[in-house]
């Protein structure tokens, strides 16, 4: 599957593992938050080898504080957007980044071009663009606005400065 990572279209190596499917022995996998809670030890033992990284997929109803202690275990966090116009995932991203998460933060679900600009500024660096849309066109979202008014999480080409903080 092709995704956007750091503003580039790349072939994605991560595997989304459904809750009722077996976790493969090798490869980078993304499991649900529920599965992580249920199979924590097994998943940790698996990813301990180093060649099989672990990612977790968070529902947007989750209180990010619940994830805080587990953050060091994840190389990737995916946040679900059940509807493109549901902005809960944006707050989750900011809070996860605030807690110091440095791995890949990926928007999954109904991810559309016109939300990417906001998502990136909240800390997302990877996007599974909705399959019904052109991923090439979606890349344009990052260059439509070259200036912003408020500081945000993700470093961008524009100065990281609040508009009202002029020198």
């Amino acid at each position: 599957m092709r995704i956007i990572r750091n503003r580039k279209i790349v072939e994605d190596g991560w595997i989304h593992v459904a809750d009722d499917a077996e976790v493969p022995a090798d490869g980078d996998v993304i499991v649900s938050w529920k599965r992580w809670r249920e199979s924590r030890e097994a998943l940790l033992a698996r990813s301990g080898s180093g060649s099989a990284r672990l990612g977790v997929r968070l529902p947007n109803t989750l209180d990010p504080h619940e994830v805080q202690a587990d953050l060091p275990h994840f190389a990737l966090i995916a946040v679900e957007f059940p509807k493109y116009r549901d902005g809960r995932g944006l707050s989750i991203a900011r809070m996860v980044r605030r807690e110091g998460f440095r791995g890949e933060l990926r928007a999954v679900g109904n991810v559309l071009r016109d939300q990417l600009f906001y998502m990136e500024r909240c800390g997302f660096d990877a996007f599974e663009v909705d399959k019904s849309k052109s991923i090439e066109n979606a890349l344009e979202a990052f260059s439509e606005l070259s200036v912003t008014y408020q500081d945000a999480i993700q470093p961008r080409s524009v100065p990281r400065q609040h508009r009202w903080r002029r020198s």
Partner: peptide, 17 residues
């Protein structure tokens, strides 16, 4: 008001409340 306007304009987190 103006500071708040600037803070809230295209605020990335609060665009889809």
């Amino acid at each position: 008001c103006e500071i708040t306007r600037q803070w809230s304009t295209f605020h990335p987190e609060f665009a889809f409340l």
